[in-house]
Design a protein around this nucleic acid. Sequence first.
DNA 1: TGCTGATTTCACACATCTATTACATCCAGA
DNA 2: TCTGGATGTAATAGATGTGTGAAATCAGCA
Lengths: 230, 230
Amino acid sequence: MSARILLVEDNADLAEGVEYNLRLEGYDVKVADNGKIAVEIALSWQPDLILLDLMLPEMDGYQVLRRVRQFAANVPVIILSARGEEADKVRGFKLDADQYVTKPFSIVELLERIAALLRRNARALPDAPASRVSFGEVDIDTASRTVLRNGKPCTLTPKAYELLLALVRRDGAVAGRTELLKEVWGYGAFIMTRTVDTHIAELRRKLESNPAEPRHIVTVWKVGYRLSKA
Amino acid sequence: MSARILLVEDNADLAEGVEYNLRLEGYDVKVADNGKIAVEIALSWQPDLILLDLMLPEMDGYQVLRRVRQFAANVPVIILSARGEEADKVRGFKLDADQYVTKPFSIVELLERIAALLRRNARALPDAPASRVSFGEVDIDTASRTVLRNGKPCTLTPKAYELLLALVRRDGAVAGRTELLKEVWGYGAFIMTRTVDTHIAELRRKLESNPAEPRHIVTVWKVGYRLSKA
DNA sequence: TGCTGATTTCACACATCTATTACATCCAGA
DNA sequence: TCTGGATGTAATAGATGTGTGAAATCAGCA
């Protein structure tokens, strides 16, 4: 049985995008577009993790959090907020949110945080997300955020690491530059000149035995990149 | 074994009533009617949760809370107070009380909150790590709260020791600064401060053979720190 | 009250990352 | 083979994060 995630978000576009990606990861997802329903679902469905927007109709995010905490004090909660006000942050954390992510956020980063929180509760959860992936001579351990090549540690820059995860997530399917930008840089990012390519180059330099003839990080002409595990 | 609750309350009638109800719920209860005794019991008996009145003889509730937090930063504390002043609330929360209940309060509500906090803690702090842990040339004995390096005793300041344990508990997984602040310091808020870094520096200074090139206490850029046993 | 050590904060140096530019190279189709 | 657009990548300047010594603050204690 997969982990249950409740997404509380009234912006339909954003909700859809996040929901899609969560399902892609294999999570069981429900979406609530207002606070009242959110509380109901939280209590009846008992999700393993909650993603909570603070700006909501009906009942604002703080109240939702408070209500939920009364009945399920241990569910990890990640707050999604567009506001950057310090006051909000403090207040949210006082009510014991576990993480605080500001919009626009990177999908990959969000997924990482989700996985981390679920893993932490792993003992209570039957199917914690896997923490190790490998292809070719490369091993990735997402828990320690470590990449090994031929067993030797290999330091990637943060962006390159996230980009790698984004490719891994695709499981061999091609990813367009724009998609990658959205997933790694955040959905608010503009298209920037050659940024993705540069980081792809770093990955090849550090992970491929012959960067000039990449075997794993493959270019798909006019489309984007894909990861070939072979 | 049932959960231990320390009730700190000088009003004998009220204390008796609450104690009665707690025992009815199956909790193991001790009552302290002044601050000095409260701290003593808190340290020696190690309750799983503390109910704390703010108006106390001898030593006021704030001081009790502060003392207790120093030695047991993670014990859930519910403050019981007759005063409704906002100032009090803020101050209490700053010291990280987990809940704040104003008199007169409903016993049922209180019991609910207690149950919620105990449940949460049961998961958040799953278990004490093995009594002895070691990595590299460092040995930690959590039972005696002792750290050895190359067999020689090595005195860490209390905070640094807690921080080290927090990293050990992660078992190699990365820990964000915010997480560490929450876990070790009990801060709930998003606080921009270099406190964690400073104590990390102390750990490196005292535990690493070459602090400038840390082999065990590793920085993960833009994310946090992790402990590498290798 | 003053002393002592722990803790936090501050400031600045230093390290690392990142977007972008610029130019070389490659590909597909004419 | 030529050509134009797409990709590869080294270099770089600016942004951002981290390390750390020292000062300020706090807490416990005689």
